[in-house]
Each structure stands twice: as structure tokens, then as C-alpha cells.
């Protein structure tokens, strides 16, 4: 028909094209918001943001443990700390406040917990370090924070963490704090099941613990599969400063 009509049609096509492109951008940004969650974890890992590192919540591989060399030239003051979230009615404290430790020296430390209530509880300890940057230099072989901990009414227990400090720790750092915050997760968990698992783990019978594997479990939904092989000690980037 007229030229005008053609122009109009062209305009409409242009509008549609702009709209489609913008919508694609929009969907991308919405996805990006959720992608920021794992990106944030990686950022924490690399920069030590907020004292988070998956080295704090996952065990190192045996082959890396075999290669650990002790650095006798310096000692690091390692301080232990314990907090209760929301007044969890549990007595929770480290059995040793401070220790001097050589980087590479593998040692076991313990915390004492006591359930002062008449109820069975399931607890989860969340680790954190200070200064924040040191998080990725602490290596754990075993830790009570890897698992949910059952604690029967009135029960008193000793929880242990076996760890060493990686020798790539920057020279200017001579003290660090390892802190655990205890959360009561009884409602979200199953005391019986957790107890059975714990017994099996301790007696080593027929127990395959997926969370002790190299594929780390992270409890943030939607990112389980995103974890990379991060345990390779030798490849450590050492960007803590």
C-alpha cells in the first residue's frame, strides 16, 4: 500500500526486535542474580571475603596430607573461640584457648559441649576465621563441623578438629582465630538418623559418607554441582593478602 504503511510496519518490526533483545537481557539478569550466589562463594574463596572458605567446611585429600612439610622457622598463634547462636541452651567452649603451632604441623584440638536441656538436640557448628584473609590457609583433616552433631538430653561430649596451617601463609600473619558458632537445627533435622550416622561413621562400618568425598557438599540449594576440585593443595593460589 502506501509508503507510510510500510514505514509503520518497519517500525513495528523494529519495536518487536528491541523488545525481544531486551527480554533476553532481562532473563539473563534474573538468572545472573542467582548465579551471583556461587560467584560470591568463589569470590570469598579467592579474596577471603568474610572469612569463608571451603577449606573450613571440607576435609583435605589424603595425598595432600602426605605431602605436608612442617615449617619450623615460625610459630603461629592459633586462638580458638566458641559462640552460641540465639542462646542455644548448650555449653560450648574450646578445651584450649590458644596454641602456638608451626605451619604444616598436624594437630588435634577439642571443644566441649554439654546439652543442659531435657531434650535431644541436633547441632551444626559454623566455622569462621579472623583475620578474614586466613580462611583458605587453614586445612582440616577432620572437623565436627563437617557433620550435624546429635546431642542427647543432658549429654556431654568432646568434639574434635584435626588441622594444620598451610605453609604458604603470608609471613606477616602471626596470629589467627578459629571460631565456631553453634546453631540448633533440631527442627530441620532428624535426631535418630543423625545419631545412627554418627555411630556408623565412628565405628567405620559399612558407611559411605558422601559429604566426606571430594565432591563437597554445600547446603546452599542450586549450587551443588558447581563446586570445582578445590582441594589441590599444591595449586593453592595464596591470594590472601
Amino acid at each position: 500500500m502506501s509508503i507510510k504503511n510500510k514505514q509503520e510496519e518497519q517500525k513495528q518490526r523494529g519495536i518487536r526486535r528491541t523488545l525481544i533483545k531486551s527480554l533476553i537481557g532481562l532473563v539473563f539478569m534474573f538468572g545472573f542474580a542467582f548465579a551471583l550466589v556461587p560467584i560470591y562463594d568463589v569470590l570469598c574463596e579467592v579474596t577471603g571475603l568474610n572469612g569463608r572458605s571451603q577449606f573450613l567446611t571440607n576435609p583435605v585429600k589424603q595425598k595432600n596430607i602426605d605431602k605436608v612439610v612442617v615449617d619450623y622457622s615460625r610459630k603461629i598463634k592459633l586462638q580458638f573461640d566458641a559462640s552460641n547462636n540465639k542462646h542455644v541452651p548448650i555449653e560450648f567452649e574450646p578445651n584450649q584457648r590458644n596454641t602456638l603451632i608451626n605451619p604444616g604441623d598436624i594437630k588435634t584440638f577439642t571443644y566441649r559441649v554439654k546439652n543442659t536441656t531435657g531434650k535431644d538436640m541436633v547441632l551444626q557448628a559454623i566455622p569462621s576465621t579472623s583475620p578474614n584473609e586466613v580462611a583458605s590457609y587453614l586445612r582440616k583433616i577432620e572437623c565436627f563441623c563437617f557433620n550435624q552433631q546429635p546431642l542427647a538430653a543432658g549429654e556431654e561430649a568432646e568434639l574434635s578438629v584435626r588441622l594444620y596451617i598451610h605453609s604458604s601463609l603470608p609471613k606477616e600473619i602471626n596470629a589467627m582465630t578459629l571460631s565456631y558458632t553453634l546453631y540448633d537445627i533440631t527442627e530441620a533435622s532428624d535426631f535418630q538418623k543423625i545419631s545412627v550416622e554418627k555411630n556408623a561413621r565412628e565405628n567405620d562400618i559399612d558407611y559411605i559418607a558422601p559429604e566426606h568425598d571430594d565432591d563437597h557438599e554445600h547446603s546452599i540449594p542450586g549450587q551443588e554441582s558447581k563446586q570445582e576440585e578445590h582441594n589441590d593443595d599444591d595449586d593453592h593460589h595464596g591470594t590472601g593478602t
Binding site: R52, S128, S130
Partner: peptide, 8 residues
Amino acid sequence: AIPGFINE
């Protein structure tokens, strides 16, 4: 002061 984490 952040629950679950320590700052210094």
C-alpha cells in the same frame, strides 16, 4: 557484628 561470622 554478623551472626555466624567473626570480624575483628
